[in-house]
Write a protein that binds this DNA or RNA. Structure first.
Length: 774
DNA sequence: CATGGCTTTACC
DNA sequence: GGTAAAGC
């Protein structure tokens, strides 16, 4: 289920808006602390190092030269009177729920204007307002609506000095059919003009949207108005704050001439660098000189097509309704000497993260009637010089912090063969980053509520989606029945046996009204869309056993196999005190053994004959193998074959550390693989260290690593050879296969947004009187 | 050690 | 499923 695309025939038919809150975190702070309104403000994140990291700067502060990427102290130098509100700190980490809630509040207002709202981040949302534009156009033609100048306050048009100039130009076009210098057909000219009119009307609607946001939430925002998402996003940045910008079709080419490729969303990172370097270009206009095939050959097939189109101002990605995020997670870094060294510390932070997750998941269940089914834990370990990150997923059994923490720990431990040093309390490899996230949400509303009406409504919606129409009626969906029997649901998912759970259940919930209620009545013809509605409803009939089916993981093995009951007890003891006292939490380190422990003794080494570096004696053999492998990588392709064959013939390389059954050749370049191997297992490796295998992710003791990697190398070589042979023999079959898997989901067509301008002769002359007045 | 803490997406 | 990249 990749991105929904619209039909290319409709590439200019939509009116797409990107609403972007101006320095949002600062606005939130200003709203709740009127004393600081209008002053220079930068929101900083807790870290006391040099005054904390700045994550948002308001415009008065920007005027003084304060930027992101500054620390609080530096900001003070530029602007001594600056106010530096702190992101709240809960459970020893930043807590941004304040801003999340504020973002939701804004999105709820936006949603009253169209169900085609796609939240892109906490402070950004795309809207497809095509339907509203067409409706207004009809009203104008019927004389029910007049586009007055005040509807276009704070509006700009790319390529024009003022919006008035743009309006003037549109009306001139209307009057003078002969636009000499361009070789356009009459039909093209009319279409172009109509697209401008739609954008202009769109701008008037966006002004109303922004007014509503300001009036209902107090927040200001900027917006870009264009025919697609990429351009809307780009355009929103042209005039800020509290302004809006139109991108007329005809201005795209001129704008592209000076627009750096790296400004385009998706090309701002390494890919953009690659594009610029490989093609020796810098601006978007230059990108249009390359044929699609060439772009596809340099990059991925899909990416090449995307680039080809966006170089022409075309982006077919649909605005897909989305209000809630698909995953809920939190994480924390432990840089430098903050690295987690001991099991007890690890448990501590997993507990904190899990606790936050539980809280947010419960809130999410209340608000959205859904439950997460998957838990993903990610972590980065320091191994030698570099940090190696991994993620592992397990079923999410219950919204229970202790269970989540235990399962997360279990997942880490299961993935790491030499997790602990011999004393069973100090980690072999320090942890520099920890994250827990929950996803794979399933609907959790009572099956009883799935009455026929709801079913029908959603099936109709599904059918409509398959027909891939967008209009308001079709997008209309019964809003999620929130707050339905949540207690029952909750008690089902919890194991009441646990004392903590009982507590949570009895904890009174504040009777928060559904946020949609606040605004949904304002504009009666629009109702609220449910995110990803189709398939989920079909699953609603599945009985609860499935949803709540106990995931029998080894909480018990956790106690028995590893550390024994002591640490677990210590940890839970500590937790209870932690919850009550902030200072107790800060002192957690004092109680942990690993902080009082002497470092391990160094192991005996011997110089390597090849590189003369000191290598632990028990690793010298594999280290020399490593040199051998490097040599091998420098030889020619033909030699790989021979090398491979001899390698397989010899029994010295065999899969000793049992690999996963589904090892796939990831890097087609063998050199790349060998380089990675060198970095991870090179001479820098600490004695007794273990490392995750760069290929299968499994943690392997360093002295066994080389053999393990050799195994992968051999396997890769074999796979590559196989692929080479396959390609030469059956190259056509390969392409067929790719097409088949690509074509099904991704290129779903969508017919024109109903009633494109072509089908409706716009009585543009009515506009004329207004236009000339501007 | 030094933006940090998010979230999403595409690819393998 | 896991990783890397991207962007706010």
């Amino acid at each position: 289920m990749s991105k929904q695309l619209i039909n290319i025939a409709n590439k200019y038919d939509r009116v797409v808006v990107l609403v972007d809150m101006d320095c949002f975190y600062c606005q939130v702070e200003e709203k709740y602390n009127p004393d600081i309104r209008g002053k220079p403000i930068a929101v900083v994140q807790y870290n006391p190092w040099q005054g904390g990291g700045i994550i948002a700067v308001n415009y008065p502060a920007r005027a003084k030269g304060v930027t992101r990427h500054m620390r609080g102290d530096e900001a003070k130098q530029h602007c001594p009177e600056i106010v530096l509100p702190q992101v709240p700190q809960v459970r020893g980490k930043a807590d941004i729920s304040k801003y999340r809630d504020a973002g939701k509040e804004v999105a709820a207002v936006l949603q009253t204007f169209t169900p085609l709202l796609e939240r892109a981040s906490v402070d950004e949302a795309y809207m497809d307002i095509t339907e509203r534009v067409l409706a207004r156009l009809r009203d104008m033609n019927e004389g029910k609506f007049q586009l007055l100048p005040e509807k276009l306050l704070n509006t700009f048009a790319v390529g024009y000095d003022s919006i008035g100039e743009f309006v003037q130009k549109i009306s001139c076009d209307l009057d003078e059919p002969s636009d000499s210098q361009e070789m356009e057909s009459e039909e093209d000219r009319v279409a172009l003009k109509k697209s401008d009119i739609k954008l202009l009307i769109g701008a008037s609607i966006v002004n109303e949207i922004r007014d509503a946001v300001k009036q209902k939430t107090g927040y200001e925002c900027s917006a870009g108005i264009a025919h697609n998402k990429i351009l809307a996003k780009l355009t929103a940045g042209f005039h800020k704050p509290n302004k809006q910008t139109i991108l007329p079709l005809k201005s795209i080419n001129k704008m592209y001439e000076t627009l750096s490729i790296k400004k385009v969303k998706g090309l701002g990172g390494k890919l953009g660098d690659q594009v610029c370097e490989l093609l020796k270009i810098q601006f978007m206009s230059e990108l249009a000189k390359f044929p699609e095939k060439l772009l596809q050959s340099h990059f991925e097939e899909r990416m090449g097509s995307w680039m080809f189109l966006i170089a022409r101002g075309i982006d077919l990605e649909a605005v897909t309704p989305k209000f809630n995020s698909k995953s809920i997670g939190c994480c924390k870094r432990f840089p430098g000497k903050n690295a987690i060294l001991g099991l007890a510390t690890l448990k501590h932070w997993l507990g904190e993260l899990a606790s936050e997750i539980q809280e947010r998941l419960e809130k999410d269940m209340d608000e959205n009637g859904r439950v997460a089914k998957q838990l993903t834990v990610s972590y980065a370990q320091q191994i030698g010089e570099n940090d190696v990150s991994s993620t592992r997923s397990v079923p999410l059994a219950a919204y229970d912090a202790e269970r989540i923490a235990a399962d997360a720990l279990d997942a880490i431990r299961r993935n790491t063969e030499f997790f602990l040093k011999s004393d069973n309390e100090v980690l072999n490899n320090p942890i520099k980053f920890l994250g827990i996230s929950a996803g794979k949400f399933e609907d959790n509303r009572d099956a009883k509520k799935n009455d026929l009406k709801l079913m029908f409504s959603n099936m109709a919606n599904k059918a409509a989606q398959e027909k891939t129409t967008i209009n308001l009626q079709d997008a209309e969906v019964v809003p999620p029945e929130k707050c339905v029997e949540k207690k029952n649901i909750k008690s089902f998912f919890k194991t009441p046996a646990r004392a903590q759970d009982a507590e949570t259940i009895s904890k009174p919930k504040s009777p928060v009204p559904c946020e949609n209620d606040l605004t949904s009545n304002e504009i009666p013809e629009i109702s609220i869309a449910v995110e990803e509605n189709e398939d989920k409803f079909l699953n609603d009939t599945i009985p609860f056993e499935k949803a709540g089916s106990p995931h029998i993981t080894s909480t018990s093995t956790l106690n028995s196999t590893e550390t024994g009951p002591d640490i677990k007890q210590e940890s839970s003891c500590l937790r209870k005190e932690d919850m009550t006292s902030q200072t107790a939490r800060e002192d957690y380190r004092q109680t942990y053994a690993e902080f009082c422990r002497a470092p391990d003794l160094q192991q005996a080494t011997e110089p390597c004959p090849d590189c003369s570096k000191a290598i632990p004696v028990n690793q010298i053999q594999s280290h020399r193998d490593f040199h051998l492998a490097l040599q091998l990588s420098q030889q020619q392709r033909e030699e790989y074959r021979n090398e491979l064959k001899s390698k397989f013939a010899s029994p010295s390389v065999k899969p000793k550390a049992a690999p996963r059954p589904t090892v796939v050749a990831k890097n087609t370049q063998i050199n790349k693989f060998l380089v990675t191997a060198a970095v991870q297992n090179g001479p820098a490796s600490a004695p007794e260290a273990s490392a995750p295998c760069s290929e299968c992710g499994k943690t392997i003791a360093s002295d066994g690593m080389q053999e393990h990697l050799d195994y992968h190398t051999a396997r890769k070589l074999q796979l590559e050879l196989n692929q080479m042979e396959m390609r030469t023999v059956t190259s056509s079959a390969g392409t067929q296969l790719r097409k088949e898997s690509d074509g099904s989901g991704s290129k779903r067509k969508r017919p024109p947004a109903s009633g494109s301008l072509k089908s409706q002769p716009a009585k543009v002359n009515n506009l004329n009187t207004y236009f000339t007045r501007m």
